[in-house]
Amino acid sequence: MADKFKFALAVLLLVAGIAGFYLLAEQAMILRVLAVMAGTALAVAVAWRTEQGQRFFVFARESATEAKKVVWPSRKETMQTTGMVFAFVVVMAVFLWLTDKSLEWLMYDLVLGWRKS
Rank of each mutant, 00 (worst) to 15 (best):
D100A: 14
M79A: 09
M79K: 10
A10C: 03
R55I: 00
F7G: 01
G53I: 00
R115N: 11
V111P: 12
L14D: 05
L12S: 05
M84I: 07
L13C: 04
S74E: 03
M1H: 04
V89M: 10
M29Y: 12
W114H: 11
K116H: 13
Q80L: 15
L110G: 05
R115D: 07
A45K: 01
F59N: 08
L106A: 10
A16W: 02
G113E: 02
A8Q: 01
G53E: 02
I30E: 07
T50Y: 01
V111A: 04
L13R: 01
A25E: 11
W97A: 15
A25R: 03
E77C: 08
A67L: 12
M29Q: 05
Y108M: 10
E51G: 14
L103C: 08
G113K: 02
F88R: 08
A38E: 03
T81L: 10
Q54P: 12
V71M: 05
A35F: 03
V85D: 00
V70L: 06
D3L: 00
D100V: 12
A8D: 01
T65S: 15
S117E: 13
A41S: 07
P73C: 01
L96W: 10
V89C: 10
D100M: 15
L14H: 08
V71S: 08
T99V: 11
A10T: 00
V58H: 12
A60I: 08
A25Y: 05
A41F: 03
V36K: 03
S117A: 11
M79N: 12
E26I: 05
V33R: 00
R115W: 03
V91L: 06
T99P: 10
V46A: 00
A28I: 10
D100P: 09
A28E: 10
W105L: 12
W114Q: 11
M37Q: 09
V58A: 09
V90T: 06
R61V: 07
L24W: 05
E51M: 04
L112F: 12
M92G: 06
A8C: 05
A38D: 04
W72A: 12
F59K: 08
L23H: 02
R115G: 11
F57R: 07
W72R: 08
A16C: 06
R75E: 13
A43F: 00
V111Q: 03
G83Y: 02
Q54C: 07
S102V: 15
T65H: 15
S102A: 15
Q54K: 11
S63Q: 14
S63P: 10
A25L: 06
E66L: 12
E66Y: 11
A93I: 09
V71L: 01
V89A: 14
